[in-house]
Computed example of a mutant assay.
Amino acid sequence: MTAGSTGSIRTDIAHNARVWNYWLGGKDNYPVDRAVGDQVVSMYPSIGEVARADRAFLGRAVTYLAGEAGVRQFLDIGTGLPTADNTHEVAQRIAPGSRVVYVDNDPIVLAHARALLTGSAEGVTEYIDADAHHPDRILAAIEPTLDLSRPVAVMMLGILNFVLDTDEARSIVRTLMAAMPSGSHLVLTHPTLELGGEGNAEAMEFWNKNATPPITARSREEIASFLDGLEILEPGIVSCASWRSPAPRELAQFGAVARKP
C-alpha cells in the first residue's frame, strides 16, 4: 500500500464515482472528492441538480422499459456507487424476475458490489469488473446471466463522456448494440455545453486538471450519431430532466432512449 491510496483505491485525487456520490448526498467519498466537488459547484452551480436529474431519469427510463416495454434484462455499464433506486431495484420492483448485470472497473465500486448484488429472490443481479473501452470483453462476460437471444436494455448513463474520442465512443455503442437482438434498447445520458451548459466548460477544464477520469461534453448531433440505426423514442434527445418528466426543465445533460428495430 502506498501513500495516498487504500489498496488500489486512490485517495489523493478526486474520482468521478465518488464525487458524483457526494453530489447525490452519499457518504462514499474522501476529502479530496468533496473539495473538488465543491469547487465544481462554485463554478457550475447546477451540477448537483444534474446529478439528481440523471438519477431520476434512470428511474423513469427503467420504469418504462420494465413496464410498458416488457424488457426483463438490463446491462448497466458504468454503474457508479450504489445509491437509492439502482437499476435492479427499479426493474425488479416492477418485474421481480428481471436480470441485471452491472459493469464497472472502479476499485471503490467493486468494493461496494455486494450492496449492489442484493436483488429480488426471483431475479438475478450480477456485477462484472470490466472497462467500457472494451465492449467485446463485456459481451463475453455477460452470458449466461443475460440471454442475448432476448431483448436487453443497455444502460450507458454518464459513461460515454469518459471516452474522449467520439469515433471510439461510436464504435463501443455499435459493438454492444450489434450483439443485441431486435427489441433491445439503448439508454444514454451525456453532458453537453448546449441547453444552457456553456458555463460548464470552465468547470470541465478544472475537472480534467484535478480529477480522474477526464471528461468531455458533446452536442446533440454527436449524441444522435450514437443512436444511428435505432428508433429514438419520444420525446427524442432532450434534457434528461425533461424526458417523460412531470416537471420538465432544461439542464445541460442530454437523455435519450432508443429501440433496436
Rank of each mutant, 00 (worst) to 15 (best):
M1L: 15
T6E: 13
S8E: 14
T11I: 11
T11N: 09
I13A: 08
H15N: 14
N16G: 12
G26C: 10
K27R: 13
D28H: 06
Y30I: 03
P31V: 04
V32H: 00
V32R: 04
A35L: 14
V36R: 03
G37E: 10
G37H: 11
D38M: 14
Q39I: 11
Y44C: 14
S46P: 15
G48P: 14
R55F: 12
R55G: 13
G59L: 02
A61F: 01
A61H: 03
A61P: 05
V62C: 06
T63G: 15
A66M: 06
A66Y: 00
E68A: 09
I77D: 07
P82L: 00
N86M: 02
E89T: 07
A91Q: 10
Q92N: 00
G97C: 09
G97L: 00
S98I: 04
V100N: 06
D106F: 05
P107S: 08
P107F: 06
P107A: 08
I108R: 10
A113F: 00
E122R: 08
V124L: 12
E126T: 09
D129E: 13
D129S: 12
D129P: 01
A132Q: 04
P135F: 04
D136E: 15
I138D: 05
E143I: 06
L148K: 05
S149W: 11
R150W: 09
P151M: 07
P151S: 05
A153P: 05
V154M: 09
M155A: 10
M156L: 06
M156D: 00
L157D: 00
G158F: 08
G158I: 09
I159S: 04
F162R: 08
D165T: 00
T166V: 15
T166L: 15
D167P: 15
V173L: 01
R174D: 13
R174S: 13
L176M: 13
L176V: 12
M177S: 10
M180A: 13
S182D: 15
G183L: 01
S184L: 09
V187R: 08
L188A: 09
T189Y: 04
H190F: 03
L193D: 13
G196M: 12
N200T: 03
E202N: 03
A203Y: 11
A203C: 07
E205L: 14
F206E: 10
F206M: 10
F206S: 05
F206T: 12
N208D: 07
N208K: 04
K209C: 15
N210L: 02
I215P: 07
T216E: 12
T216L: 11
R220G: 03
I223R: 12
F226L: 09
F226D: 01
D228T: 15
L230G: 06
L230Q: 02
I232F: 08
I232Q: 05
L233R: 09
L233E: 15
L233F: 07
E234F: 11
P235H: 07
I237Q: 00
S242M: 01
P246E: 12
P248L: 00
R249D: 01
R249T: 05
Q253K: 14
A258Y: 02
A258H: 06
R259I: 10
P261Q: 06
